[in-house]
């Protein structure tokens, strides 16, 4: 399939998003849109390793945390957070390499539980390190301007989140058409058959894991600059990893647009729940997400986007059968 429709859709989202980011003064909605693109980016990052490659991770927040902490450390040291972009990405990539090398060959729940363990170890490590702010975390000093990645309005943040999402989306579009993309899908479908055509599971999964870890780190930098506060519960905790996985699953794992759809559902629900039931943290949002995940897992295991693709394919498949059968009937 040609990438053109995807590119057009992405361009439309970027244009509309930018118009909105710099046109709107509604802080609440801008905040939602920022969160939407930030989560969509994180969901897509997760989707590389858990969707395309099929290693379901419940520890993806640690890479997000790498970026957030890099930004917090840089700004507090009087350095530009732009420095945290390569630094955070590098640390995340290194962490992905070190943790992925032994664990990526684990299958199913063995991998998933290992990611929980690794996530908890990283979380614990940060909580015990003075230079990382222990359990209390950091505030970031208030600065201003593009050089400090801080702005008095929310508009530029939304634009940056949108830009990051667009980049990751382009990378994913390229992934789907690349050798890596074919190999990840083959490994997910059947690792033994994949090896029989010469695919080195560890090598290709490590490439995917390190790449997507850097995306999450970039999102972390942006998040820290936006909230100006970083601590373990908001960046590293299991609950953040679970949110990222939620977004990935709801939209549909291993699909290009799944993470954006998942993030939209997530953000809209958060807003509705806050509006109607009085704030999150009371669990109503969790009840609804949980119910959605349950319904999807039991009745639509390919997620929202995956189900749409399946339906389209079925329709096309049915057309195939008809066109094959007709000549036979004529003859």
């Amino acid at each position: 399939m040609s990438p053109r429709p995807h590119l057009i859709a992405l361009a439309a989202i970027v244009v509309l998003g930018l118009l909105y980011a710099f046109g709107s003064k509604d802080a609440v909605t801008l905040d939602l849109v920022f969160t939407l693109f930030l989560y969509a980016t994180l969901g897509q990052s997760w989707n590389w390793i858990s969707g395309y490659a099929g290693n379901i991770s419940f520890g993806h927040a640690i890479f997000f945390g790498c970026g957030a902490y890099a930004a917090a450390l840089c700004t507090n040291a009087g350095l530009s957070p732009w420095l945290a972009v390569p630094a955070g990405a590098l640390v995340a990539a290194a962490l992905a390499l070190v943790t992925g090398f032994p664990t990526l060959a684990l299958r199913g729940h063995y991998f998933s539980i290992a990611t929980i363990a690794v996530g908890a170890l990283v979380d614990t490590y940060v909580r015990t390190q003075g230079w990382l702010g222990m359990a209390n975390g950091f505030e970031l000093p208030i600065k201003n301007g593009l050089g400090w990645l801080q702005f008095s309005d929310k508009g530029p943040y939304v634009a940056l989140a949108l830009g990051l999402f667009a980049l990751v989306q382009l990378a994913t579009l390229a992934l789907e058409r690349s050798r890596l993309g074919y190999y990840l899908r083959a490994l997910r479908a059947n690792h033994a058959a994949a090896a029989s055509v010469g695919i080195d599971e560890r090598r290709w999964k490590l490439i995917a894991f390190t790449s997507c870890a850097t995306f999450a780190a970039l999102a972390g930098v942006l998040y820290a600059q936006y909230t100006l506060f970083v601590d373990p519960p908001s960046t590293l905790a299991l609950s953040i990893s679970i949110d990222i996985a939620l977004i990935g699953v709801v939209g549909g794992i291993g699909t290009l647009w799944g993470p954006l759809v998942g993030a939209s559902v997530y953000v809209l629900l958060a807003k509705e729940v806050a509006l109607r039931l009085g704030g999150s943290g009371k669990g109503y949002d969790l009840v609804i997400y949980g119910a959605i995940i349950c319904l999807i897992a039991a009745w639509r295991p390919h997620g929202i986007v995956g189900s749409i693709i399946d339906a389209l394919r079925r329709r096309r498949g049915a057309a195939d059968v008809v066109s094959v059968q007709n000549p036979a009937e004529a003859a």
Partner: peptide
């Protein structure tokens, strides 16, 4: 994995 995870959240 997803289903029981959803149950957890619910």
């Amino acid at each position: 994995v997803f289903g029981t995870f959803g149950l957890l959240v619910l």
